[in-house]
Design a protein around this nucleic acid. Structure first.
Lengths: 249, 249
DNA sequence: ATATAATTTGCAATATTGTGCAATGTTAAT
DNA sequence: ATTAACATTGCACAATATTGCAAATTATAT
């Protein structure tokens, strides 16, 4: 039996049953479990399924959905988030932007901290709901699908009312000359207002965001007070950021 | 059985029942409670649910108070919620208030409905996020602890911008002469504005709310277009409502 | 065709992970 | 305070994974 035949068989069964077992496939296909294991491994590498202990399940829907995104590179972001906590002091007014990085910060925020938090992110607001000493001011507006944030003019007008001490800004792309940029026009607009409304900007960026650019401009790099990233500088381009007073985890 | 299967099962049950118990899952899945505990812990780490003593609850739209209330008289409210759906038509602008009743309506809303929804309720907004044809406009403001709604002047100003077709109003207390009342001043204020901004008011009230009163006035009973409740009239006081054109599930 | 290289497969030894059990802490309710 | 329910920890055992390797198969070049 051809390898491709097994592949097809496995994938068919997967859509039908939503799961396959190593043992079962082994007998059905008349090959050893090792072979099935290797097949599954190969299919997993192609992103066609998800290999799990004892078998496989359909690949979870792409990282377009928030819930999946938040799982994505959690370790890196968690490191960053933990570092970001050092910049928050009791009594401050803090703007949390809508990205996944900011959510992780909210997740790690000590329960006894006293803050006023302004945000347009549902996950952030929900997480902080349980913090007794955190007052949450939520920016209304149109709900952006698959992102759990509000956007639009209402959101912007709300944010303009504040003069925050700090803004936690999740970074999509950052580039020495092109500055901070993002892939969505309206989200970028909101970020821009958040920045205008804050004295200090703490940028949260995993290392792969550095020296990349997207379509919509947010702000110049020198508007950022601190860039927190998860890896030390290795290449030349990184110097730009260290000169700005970069902090690393 | 694969671990992933258990995960699926747990998450599915969670969206359906809004809660899962260790003991129940243990027998249903034929594994020890320890294993279920570990599963829940792992899912919690991924932010997919919230681990609580004795089981788990959904992570996003669910606080404790909320949960307790939802657990309490779910059947009654579910009946009411289902009935409320009959009043919603494609293309309408609908205000969802922050109560648990409205949340259940959001939960039951068909995925293919076309609506513009205005709300100050996190659970409602989160639930409707997945509805492709529902535009959600969220009222910003101060987050009220333990309720997952926004309140305050910002919320009110936002709501005043609309002229909705229908308002789904969760009722705390309703009384023939005293009208609709609630236990929280600011929430009642918000409800008042929601009513002002809507042509029709659909009141959702379990039967034990009838003929009771609280401290803060919301509106007179005759401002309500329909009162949906879960039991047929048995006592005299109920007549009042039937005369107003009451609908029953 | 035949030899050779490359790939695939199964097997065994070893490592890793998942599971249940029991002992020990915690928490919540009375 | 006492008790019962639940959580946590450490541990042993079983299920599953990984790795290296040799035999079998397939492809490729001559």
């Amino acid at each position: 039996m051809l390898k491709e035949e097994r592949f097809r068989f496995i994938l068919d069964r997967l859509v039908h049953d939503q799961k396959v077992y190593l043992a079962g496939l082994s007998t059905l296909l008349n090959v050893s479990e090792d072979t099935v294991r290797r097949d599954i491994k190969e299919l997993a590498e192609q992103g066609l399924l998800k290999s799990v202990r004892g078998g496989a399940v359909p690949h979870s829907p792409g990282p377009h959905h928030f819930k999946d995104r938040i799982l994505h590179d959690t370790e890196q972001k968690q490191i960053i988030a933990k570092k970001a906590l050092d910049f928050l002091k009791d009594g401050q007014v803090v703007i949390f932007d809508g990205g996944t990085s900011a959510v992780l910060v909210a997740q790690l925020l000590p329960k006894d901290m006293h803050l006023t938090v302004v945000t347009n992110s549902f996950p952030v607001a929900t997480l902080l709901e349980e913090h007794e000493h955190v007052e949450v001011l939520f920016a209304g507006g149109r709900l952006l699908k698959n992102s759990f944030v509000t956007i639009g003019n209402d959101t912007i007008q709300f944010l303009k009312k504040f003069r925050a001490d700090i803004c936690l800004l999740g970074i999509c792309s950052i580039h020495a000359e092109l500055g901070v940029t993002g892939p969505d026009f309206e989200e970028s607009e909101v970020k821009r207002v958040m920045i205008e409304s804050s004295k200090e900007i703490i940028a949260l960026a995993t290392v792969e965001k550095l020296e990349t650019a997207e379509a919509y401009y947010v702000c110049p790099t020198d508007r950022l007070s601190v860039i927190i990233t998860d890896q030390p500088a290795e290449d030349e381009s990184f110097k730009v950021y260290t000169e700005l007073g970069i902090k690393m985890a």
